[in-house]
Nucleic acid binder design. Structure first.
Lengths: 258, 258
DNA sequence: AAGCCAATATTGTCATACTTATTCACCTGT
DNA sequence: ACAGGTGAATAAGTATGACAATATTGGCTT
C-alpha cells in the first residue's frame, strides 16, 4: 500500500483554497489529511481503534512528533480520542465537528453525495432565514448600501466564477448585518462548501435563470432595507430553495420543498 | 504574572461534565485551556503575535512537545496560525470555529453575557426550527416514542440537573429524528445554552414555569408525532425563545421578541 | 472463587539536536 | 541613489531515544 509522496487532492482542495487556508503542506498536514480522509471515508470505522503509534510511524515514515501532532489535530476536531493503554479510538460521527472546514473538505473528497448536499442546504435554510430576519431589524445604513451594491454586481457578472463570488459576498453581507457572530461563521462555511460544489450549474449561462436569481436577491435586500423581517425571511427561503433546486436538478432530478 | 501550578477551572467544567467529556486533565490540556481562554478573552488580541515558543515554555514549565501539541490543537480550532520566522498569530474571530465545544466553553467562562446568550438562542432558533420541521416529516415510530418519553422525564424531574439532562436529551432526540447529521452536531451549542440558562435559573424551582416549559416541549413532540412540520416549527420557536427570555429576564430585566 | 497485584502495552512527557522556511538587512553592481 | 540579489538571523518544523503514567490482562494469593 503505497502512500508516499505526490498525492493529488480533489474537490476538498477547492474548499481549502476558497477558505483562504494555507495549503503549505508540511509533513504533518500530509498525515493529517491522509488519516482524516481515511476516517471520514469509513476506512477506519467509528468506534474502532486505530493502529498503534508504532505501526502508523512505520507506515508514514515520519517522526513521532509529526504523527502525534497530526493525531492531536484530529482529536481537536472531535474525530478521535486517545487513551493510554487502550489506543486511539475513532469517535462516533455525532461527536465530529462537522462544521470544521477540514472535516467538510474530507467529506467532499469522497464525492459529494446528493443527500449530503441536501443536509447542508437544510442547515443553510435554517441559518440564513434567521440571519436575514435579524439583518432586517439591525442593519445599519452602510450595510444596506453594501447589500444593494452586491446585488448589482451579481447582475453584472459575466462568468460563473464572478457570479459565485458576488453571490457569496451578498450572503456574507447578510450574515454580517445580522450582528450575530455565529451566523457569520457558520454561513461562511456552509455557503463556501455549497458554492464549491455548485459552481458548475451557474445561472449565468441561462438568461432567464439569471434574471430570476437576481430578482430574488434584490427582494431580500429590499426587505432588509425596509426593515421587514418577515419579508426577508420569505425571500431568503425562496432564494435558497431555488438555487438548490436548480443545482440538484442539474445533478439528478431531485427536488426539495421550499 | 503568575500562571504556574494548581490552576482551577471554572464553569467550563460544568459544561464538560454535562457533555460526558473526559476531564482527565493532561498537561497539554492545561496549557490548551489556559491559552484558549486567554485568546478568547482578548488577552491576546486578534491579529497579534503570541510570545515565541521559548517564552511560553518558560511560563508553563512544560516540554516543547506539550506546548506544541496544545498550540496545534488551537490551530485546529482556527484560533491561531503559525508561520516560520513570523511567529504564531491569533486569527481574526471570524476564522474561529465557534461551534467547537471548547471554544464555546471558553466564551462562557468569561461570564455569560446576555448578548452571548442571545446570539446562541438566535442560532438555535434557526437550526432547531428546521430540525423540528424535518423531524415531523421523517420521524420513525421509535423516534416518536422516544420524544414523548423524554417529555415525561422532564415533567418528572426533581432536581435542576435532572431537568437539564432530560431537556438536552429531548433536543438531541429531535435532531436525531431530523435525519440530518449537521443538526445533531450542534448539540454542543445547545448544551452550552441550556447549561448557561439553567445555572442562572432552573424552571424546576418555579412550579408554573416548569408546567409551561413541559407543555411547550410536549407541543413540539405532539406536532412531530402528528407530522405537522409547521406546528413543530412554531412550538420549537416558542420553547427556545421562552427559555432564553427566562434566563435573560433573570439577569437584567431584558426582553426579546419571539 | 474472589480479590489483589504485577507484567505489559499503549499513549503521554521530556530533553536535545538538527532542518527548513522566511524575513530583514546588507551588500553589490548599475 | 537605486534595484536587485545574497546571506545571516530567527522562529517554527522534524527527528530521536528515553522515561513516565495509565489502564488492561492474566496470574497469583488468600
Amino acid at each position: 500500500m503505497d502512500r508516499s509522496g505526490g498525492r493529488a487532492r480533489h474537490s476538498g482542495d477547492l474548499i481549502a483554497a476558497l477558505s483562504g487556508r494555507n495549503l503549505a503542506h508540511n509533513l504533518h498536514s500530509d498525515v493529517l489529511w491522509d488519516m482524516g480522509f481515511a476516517i471520514v471515508s469509513g476506512q477506519y470505522a467509528q468506534g474502532s481503534i486505530l493502529p498503534p503509534d508504532t505501526e502508523l510511524l512505520d507506515r508514514f515514515r515520519v517522526s513521532r512528533t509529526v504523527l502525534r501532532e497530526a493525531l492531536k489535530t484530529l482529536a481537536a476536531k472531535g474525530l478521535i480520542e486517545a487513551r493510554a493503554r487502550i489506543g486511539t479510538r475513532v469517535l462516533p460521527r455525532n461527536r465530529w465537528n462537522l462544521f470544521d472546514a477540514d472535516v467538510l473538505a474530507w467529506h467532499f473528497e469522497l464525492g459529494p453525495e446528493v443527500s449530503f448536499l441536501q443536509s447542508l442546504a437544510e442547515v443553510r435554510i435554517g441559518i440564513e432565514i434567521e440571519a436575514a430576519a435579524l439583518a432586517a431589524e439591525r442593519r445599519t445604513e452602510e450595510q444596506a448600501k453594501l447589500l444593494m451594491a452586491a446585488v448589482d454586481r451579481m447582475e453584472g457578472a459575466r462568468t460563473p466564477e464572478d457570479f459565485a463570488r458576488h453571490d457569496l459576498e451578498f450572503h456574507k453581507a447578510v450574515a454580517d448585518a445580522s450582528g450575530n457572530p455565529f451566523m457569520a461563521s457558520i454561513s461562511a462555511l456552509v455557503e463556501m462548501a455549497l458554492t464549491a460544489a455548485f459552481t458548475i450549474s451557474s445561472p449565468v449561462n441561462e438568461p432567464e435563470a439569471l434574471t430570476q436569481t437576481v430578482a430574488v436577491h434584490r427582494a431580500i435586500a429590499q426587505a432588509i432595507v425596509d426593515k421587514s423581517s418577515q419579508g426577508a425571511r420569505e425571500a431568503m427561503r425562496v432564494a435558497i430553495a431555488e438555487g438548490f433546486a436548480r443545482a440538484a436538478g442539474r445533478m439528478e432530478g431531485l427536488e426539495v420543498k421550499p
